[in-house]
Simulated assay, not measured.
Amino acid sequence: MGSIHLVYASETSPTNLQLLEQLKKQLKTQQTQIDALIKKVEQNENDVKSTDEKIEATVTAIEDNLSMSENSKTSIGGYGELHYNNFDDSKKIDFHRFVIFVGHEFTDSIRLFSEIELEHAFSGDGNPGEVELEQAYIEMDLTDSITMKAGVFLIPVGITNETHEPPTFYGVERNPVEKNIIPATWWEAGAGFNTHFSDGLSADFAIHSGLNVSTNGSDAFLIRRGRQKVANANADSLAYTARIKYTAIPGLEVAASYQIQTDVSQGSLDANADLFSAHIAYSGGSFGIRVLYATWDISGTEAASVGRDSQKGFYVEPSYKINEKFGLFARYNAWDNNAGDTNDTEKKQTNIGLNYWPHANVVFKVDFENQSGAQEGSGFNLGVGYQF
């Protein structure tokens, strides 16, 4: 039995040479696998290195952009407002204004301010809209208390002429007194100075282009129709505006403006015109109030003959802010562009409504309007506005 076993083992066991060949094959296979693994590891290392480089480049770009943004001398802002007006004989929806501000700081004391506005969504022949350059001026600090500006700028008069972004006032539409009497929004070209006498007391003076009113027809001597908007404007007769403003008490603004223009017809007649405006605006806690009065006096028999040698108006607007998001207001407006005649031509308008601010720079508005006096009508207005 033992001899049989020995013979069987010798017949089935591999020789040393065969074992060596098998070992070589295994080592070769393992080496191939090791080489492939090394190659894969090297590829992964390259991929990781490439990814790290991309991440580093992205981070660097973001940091550069943030640095540029923080140190940027150019700023962009703007505002817009959509209105829906529903009255007895008229229902309209209108994207009334879309405005872009661009500013640039050349140095710590020299700055650019500009404003471009699209009114009524679409401009061009036969369309109701307009594209207007309302501001484009250079401002320079001459001293710590005196600033000069030159270019196209808003006239320093009234409450809403210089500050009229939708979240800053109550009501869907801007008040009709400043619109028709002052007339806001009103910009001209020229040069102006602002000085601060003490904390809360300042004064403005400007010399600039003036109005150019029609002297005949239904628009004769209407102040708002006389705006030239610095569009190849007639500058035969310049205008001079001065304002003094007091803001030392928190929440209170008291201001008065006076303007004189030697001829609002720009040479057609000798029609000297004076504008006087005064207002009080107060906001303390929940309660607020705005009161404004404005009047024009135009010399000459031509203006007197159509009752427009005197044009004046006022409004009173109390408001109550329920909380940071909701506010109520009521406004009584009265104005007369024919105050110089003996007829009862005074127009009156009462608005009562609500503002809702879901964000400090976003507002939804609703107000109910009643028109009386030389005009009649009633209805309501809806609006949404923003600023940034």
Rank of each mutant, 00 (worst) to 15 (best):
L118W: 02
V131E: 04
A121Y: 15
S72M: 13
E317L: 11
Q261Y: 02
I38N: 05
V362F: 09
F329I: 09
G2K: 03
G379R: 03
N355Q: 10
T163E: 12
A374R: 06
A184G: 05
A330I: 09
N216E: 15
I244W: 08
V384L: 13
E317R: 09
W186L: 12
E115Q: 14
G373N: 03
H279P: 04
E117P: 03
G226T: 03
H83P: 00
G151H: 08
K229G: 01
A303W: 05
P14V: 11
I280W: 03
I280M: 14
A150Q: 07
N272A: 12
Q387L: 10
K325L: 12
S310D: 13
W357Q: 10
D341Y: 10
T215C: 03
D47V: 14
M1Q: 02
R308K: 14
G373K: 04
L154F: 02
I110F: 13
A255F: 00
N180F: 00
E21A: 15
E70F: 10
T143M: 07
S283A: 14
K179T: 12
S305E: 13
G327M: 07
G126L: 07
I223Q: 07
I55R: 11
E53W: 01
I155E: 11
M140R: 06
W296C: 01
S214A: 15
K40I: 03
E173L: 12
R97G: 02
Q266G: 00
F87G: 05
T160Q: 08
D47P: 08
W186E: 08
E130D: 11
F287H: 01
I182L: 15
Y8I: 09
K40M: 00
L275Y: 01
V366T: 04
Q18N: 08
L82K: 11
Y170A: 11
T295P: 01
V99C: 07
S67I: 01
F169E: 05
N323S: 09
K312C: 01
S72N: 14
L142G: 05
F193V: 13
D144I: 05
I4K: 07
R225H: 03
Q18I: 08
R174E: 14
K149L: 14
L354I: 14
A303N: 09
V362H: 06
M140C: 06
I207D: 06
W296L: 10
P128H: 02
I249L: 15
F87R: 12
Y386G: 10
M68T: 12
F169M: 09
G200Y: 08
A374E: 06
G385M: 07
A248G: 08
T350V: 14
L354R: 10
Y356N: 07
E130G: 06
T107C: 10
L201N: 02
V230F: 11
G340K: 11
H96I: 00
G190C: 13
I110N: 07
V213Q: 04
S67W: 05
L292W: 00
F197H: 00
H5K: 11
L201T: 08
I100Q: 03
F388N: 07
L275S: 01
S10W: 05
A271F: 06
P128E: 04
E324M: 05
I181E: 04
A150K: 04
K348T: 05
F314V: 04
D35L: 10
Q30N: 13
N212A: 15
L82Q: 04
D341M: 12
I207R: 11
Y240H: 10
G377N: 02
L354C: 00
E117M: 12
D108G: 11
D219Q: 12
